[in-house]
Structures are given as C-alpha cells and as structure tokens.
C-alpha cells in the first residue's frame, strides 16, 4: 500500500471505523460491513477530499463454501486520480443489499445486472427487473449451484 493509499484509508476510517482493508485483492481495496455500505459510499462521493464521483463497475462473487456473496464496487476519483475497490459481504441465505443507485444513477442498471445473474435483492432500488434474461427465467445463472440441462456443462476429471 502506497503512502497516498494509506492517507485515503485513514480518511475513510475517520468517518466509519468499521472499515477494514481487504487483503484478498490485488489492488487498493476496503471492506465495509453491509449495513454501513450506503453511508460509506455517500461519504466517498460527497467528501471533498475524496470525491470518488465515478462508479466504474459493480459485480458480485459467489462464495458458496463460505455461504456469502461478496459485492464489489470499483470507484474512481478524478481529484485523487485513484481507483478504489469497495467490497462488502452479505449472507447467501438472505441475499439483501442496499442500493446505491441514489448516489450514482448508473448503479441502477449495474445492480439490475447483478440481480439478474446472482439474485441479490437491492433494497430501495427503483426498478429491480432482470436485465439480460427473460422475465420468466428460473434461477440465477452465475450462482455456483445453478443447474440447467440446457447448459451442457463440461465436466473435467
């Protein structure tokens, strides 16, 4: 972690002490408890010293063994010329997360994509529908336990 990243991290921690560094990432990454997510995100965007105004990407990772979904947000700040990865973990059994679409409008569609493929329900999302698949599609295909006879899964031995 470089010096600048350390200062950014301390700035974030000053607003919410529960934020920790995420070791499981190759780049500068923080982990936020899921109930604090919207608060931290708002701070990341609105704080003048941070100003992460651009939400580059949002995705989910299915950790089936651990019974968790990991949500990953990639943010970018023009002011600091820095990308930051914000991750949060939600239980796999109750896949509910808070929507950040009020903060970044593009999140509305990115969250729709994640909902479509992982079945994560975003609270306060304005229009949570499937994005790529038909509305009557059964199951969420990118989950590790998704099974579909149409899929012709290649089994390696």
């Amino acid at each position: 972690m470089s010096e600048r990243e350390a200062t950014i991290f301390s700035l974030i921690q000053s607003c919410c002490s529960e934020v920790i560094l995420n070791e499981g990432s190759g780049s500068f990454s923080i982990q936020v408890p899921s109930e604090k997510l919207v608060f931290v995100m708002e701070h990341l965007k609105k704080s003048e010293s941070l100003a992460f105004v651009m939400l580059l990407d949002h995705l989910a990772v299915d950790w089936k063994e651990m019974g968790e979904f990991e949500l990953v947000y990639q943010l970018y700040s023009f002011k600091l010329d820095q990308r930051i990865e914000v991750t949060t973990k939600i239980p796999r059994a109750i896949p509910n997360a808070h929507s950040v679409s009020r903060i970044w409008p593009i999140a509305e569609w990115q969250e729709r994509e994640v909902y479509d493929l992982f079945g994560i329900y975003y609270i306060n999302h304005p229009d949570l529908r499937r994005l790529f698949l038909e509305d009557d599609w059964k199951g969420f295909p990118l989950r590790k336990d998704y099974e579909d006879p149409f899929m012709l899964e290649l089994v390696k031995e």
């Binding site: 990432s25 190759g26 780049s27 580059l56 990407d57 995705l59 990772v61 990639q74 990865e85």
Partner: peptide, 30 residues
C-alpha cells in the same frame, strides 16, 4: 486473490475482474 486489469479500448475503459482460488480456472471473471 482478486485482480482488476484495465485498458483503454477504442470505446473506453475495459476492466477485467478475475478472482482466483488456487486453481487454474478462476473463481469469478467479470
């Protein structure tokens, strides 16, 4: 570990998120 490679394509930033899990096949690619 997860890795995020990004390049500037003709249309903008393409990012590749790869989450490995001690195997040849990645755990998640986005």
């Amino acid at each position: 570990k997860s890795y995020f490679g990004q390049v500037e394509t003709a249309r903008g930033i393409l990012g590749v998120y790869i989450q490995g899990c001690e195997k040849e096949e990645p755990h998640r690619v986005h």
